[in-house]
Design a protein around this nucleic acid. Structure first.
Lengths: 237, 237
DNA sequence: CCTCGACTGTGTATGTCATACACTTAGTAT
DNA sequence: ATACTAAGTGTATGACATACACAGTCGAGG
């Protein structure tokens, strides 16, 4: 644990998520918390439940973590994890190939731990070590491109927003599920919401045989639009 | 208040945010909660603080609202508000003009009540009456376009994601503020994060004389990329 | 070898929170 | 007037984050 340090800064200081082989350790605590969040959602993560899962008392956690907020930041960093080094774009690689690989990589991480979404309230710009490593790799895909530095950043952040959009949209859909269709059927006045009804009856909700593919397809569509737009700008330089 | 009804459904049933002139009412409760959230953030909204602000007891709120979750959904709906009717795109209007107007309208709403971001955990697809009205208007801007129905939806959702990205990125920047620069300076190893450093020293954080304009400029950049991509698809049909 | 201090884990206590439930009271319909 | 209903209250419960004081343990310096 650290004295007088902001939660964010604590995450940076911790870097090697070590594990002494016995007793508590930051690594163990964070791992237990992530397991809990994966299984029951972020709301299920309380100091006492995490401690119980490890067989320690609630207060023991505070020897390794200054606050719950810090714990959650650590969870986020570990759950995001470092990008595979194979994601580091080769110097001669086509930017678009690189960006696409990167984009799909980030979706995958977020889908693996959807509760990362709920941890957003804390955030702002990417700020955690692993998050920044992803950002670094993302920016590198645009290295050879004539875009200005701030433009590169905007492009990567835009794609990131799309990734979060995907996760947000498909999150509660799973949870609420039937209540959606029901709700829409019951309250969506065709006089007031003709376009919405048309869009949704086109099958955005009513997934086909393989919802995962459909979801991928939706993500791909948005991504291609973004990249087409970027390509156009690059081409104009 | 409603019996045996999901929080979301309760919001739909409530539609006219009425106000009996005395005593408590849903409208009054929601308004007080929004005032609180605007001033001190979503975290400051507790049943007891809202009640106190109105001069009633905590439990009195439960006569009008089934749970805190329902309250927050109501808050969200009211804070989002209906789109101005002038946003309803004219039939002969250029789609791009319409979409841009719509996009800027949504940013504006979100910026006025940034805590709406924190209410995301609850959500999923847009589902609240006013949210759906915005969606309806957004979709209408693409009415005359050769896009397929699900594609229109994807485009609007993509822009929406961009709006949330803008809000997310600039939210904590305000809150953490100096700690960001500090943190970056202290921990960002130029060996490991060359691209990040290049992108940020380009001035993404170090705002110019008018940060609002810079922020607008950043949003505009992403929006134009998206719309260029969409235009290209439309053109190819 | 002993002692001291640091580190790690514990137990108890406090204040906040959402919410259940039983109660009162006022207003309305018969 | 009586019975019913809606609105507001007060008290109680159980979860939670966290402060604080204490205890065991272990390694380093005498």
């Amino acid at each position: 644990m650290n004295e007088q340090v902001s939660p964010l800064e604590a995450v940076w200081k911790a870097s090697p998520y070590d594990g002494a082989r016995e007793g508590l350790s930051l690594g163990r605590i964070v791992a237990a918390a992530i397991t809990l969040a994966d299984a029951e959602g972020l709301a299920a993560v309380s100091m006492s439940r995490v401690a119980k899962a490890l067989g320690f008392t609630t207060m023991s956690l505070y020897r390794h973590v200054a606050s719950k907020e810090e714990l959650i930041l650590h969870m986020q960093d570990v759950a995001v994890g470092p990008p595979p080094t194979t994601f580091d774009p080769a110097a001669d690689e086509d930017w678009r190939t690189g960006v696409e690989r990167w984009a799909w990589g980030t979706v995958e991480r977020l889908r693996a731990h959807p509760w990362i979404l709920q941890t957003l309230p804390i955030l702002g710009p990417p700020a955690t070590p692993n998050q920044l490593t992803w950002l670094e790799y993302g920016l590198r895909t645009l290295r050879a491109t004539p875009l200005l530095e701030p433009e590169k950043l905007q492009v990567i952040l835009l794609i990131n927003a799309h990734v979060f959009g995907d996760a947000t949209f498909h999150d509660a859909e799973v949870a609420d599920d039937d209540s959606y269709e029901t709700l829409f059927a019951r309250y969506l006045d065709p006089g007031r919401f003709p376009a919405v009804i048309a869009a949704f009856s086109g099958g955005a909700f009513a997934e086909g045989p393989d919802p995962a593919t459909d979801r991928d397809e939706q993500f791909r569509f948005g991504l291609e639009r973004i990249l087409d737009g970027v390509a156009q700008l690059i081409g104009s330089r």
